[in-house]
Every structure is written in C-alpha cells, then in structure tokens.
Write a protein that binds this DNA or RNA. Sequence first.
DNA 1: CAGTATCCAAAGGGATACTG
DNA 2: CAGTATCCCTTTGGATACTG
Lengths: 117, 117
Amino acid sequence: MEILKGRTNPTIDRQLALKDAIELLSGKWKIVILKSLYLHGTMRFKDVMETSAGITPKVLSKELQQLEENLLITRTVNNTKPVSVSYALTDHASKTLPVINALIEFGLIHRKKIKSK
Amino acid sequence: MEILKGRTNPTIDRQLALKDAIELLSGKWKIVILKSLYLHGTMRFKDVMETSAGITPKVLSKELQQLEENLLITRTVNNTKPVSVSYALTDHASKTLPVINALIEFGLIHRKKIKSK
DNA sequence: CAGTATCCAAAGGGATACTG
DNA sequence: CAGTATCCCTTTGGATACTG
C-alpha cells in the first residue's frame, strides 16, 4: 500500500483506494472464497475447498493467509481429533459485499451482452 | 467464458457471472483506465498514458485491446497528421460504474482500518 | 484433516529501443 | 503520435506427492 505524507488530495486518495481494493481482491480465487463464506458462514478448510471448485490446497492455503493478513477472515484451530480449522469472515469483510454484488450484476449483464453478439 | 448447456441454475449463473466480471476487470490497469475515461471522456493514447501514471506503452496497448474486445471501449483513428487515435467508453461500460464506486468505497474504508491497526 | 514441498508452465508486466 | 519488438524478470497458479 502506497503511503502518503502530509496533506493529501481527495482525487488521489480515491485513486489509491481503488488500486488498494483491486490489489486486495485480485487473483482468481479471493472473491470466490469470500462469496462462499458469505453464503455458508463459518467453514472448515475442506469445505472451502469443495465450494471453490477447482482450487488446489496449495493455492487455497495461500489465498486464505492473504485474506487473513488483510483482516477479512479469521482462522481458528479447533481442539478436535483430527484437528479442524474454521474460517470465518470478519466484520470488516462485510464491507466488501457491495463490491461483490456489483461484480455479479455486471457479470450477468455482460453475459447477456456477449450472447447477443 | 464458460458456456452452459440447457437449463441453468441461478446460483451457478451468479458464480460464473462473478468469475467473468473478475476476469474482465482484473489486472493492474484495466479499472484505472476505465476510471480515467469516466473522468475525462474521450481521450487519445498519450493522454491515457499520462493519466495512468506508471504504465508503459506496451502494456497500455494490450489493455486497451482487451477492453475493446470486451466491448467496453471504442477505438477511433482520426484523420490528422500525425495520426491520433481516440478512445471512448461504450454504453456498456457504464455498467461497470457501480463496481468501480464500490471498490473505491471499500478501498477508502480499508485504508482507515489499516491505519488504525 | 489441514495443510506443506517440489516442480514447473504460463501469464503479467517492466525497460528500452525502434517504426510507420 | 501511436504504437510494436525484444528481452527478461516476477508472480500466479496448477499437478502431484507428502506430513504432523
């Protein structure tokens, strides 16, 4: 994240905010994972795997770590045998809901547009 | 874009729409370019270069081509010497405005969140 | 179950120079 | 002016196998 010194310009702030948001959510899987957690609530590793069809454990692991670093999800190790781990959205993550909904709306419109070509 | 045969499921439709939208808009520059065209209206190649600070001509050229393929911008060659080329948003592109605004809102919120850590 | 390790291919993207 | 060509490095992410 680019850091600004001193007084800032609102237009530039918005540009940076836009780039931040894109950086945070970009990648093939991050938004799919968030969406899945919205739909199903707290989930374990294997459940996220199943609801994010096509992802491999290595990639899922990495994406989850990044989401956690960005305060969008929490990771909880449960005292079971064998161990299970729960992932849940943070309150902060709920702020991404408008983004996800807007993306879906656009995607639906775009599909119609392309089909009619 | 993944094509579905026959009857579809609305939940799956939305998942695919989401992946489409992400694919369409992902990359470091595409949304920045769209945003710039929203702000300034029709622009020439060099103007897009200047308003998208840091991009190189090779990358800009490629991004513009992809946006054109996806029906989000138009490319017009003007009969001047030396030639100039105008890029403008299509009507379809206006459908991405909610996405961009949602991203900016989230980015601004996220910046505050991170700063207060 | 919840990952990690290794290997590898493809894509993204930057620097620089050049062209019609 | 509006790109293209070349080179090259980094990142992304898939396949597969393995571990505590």
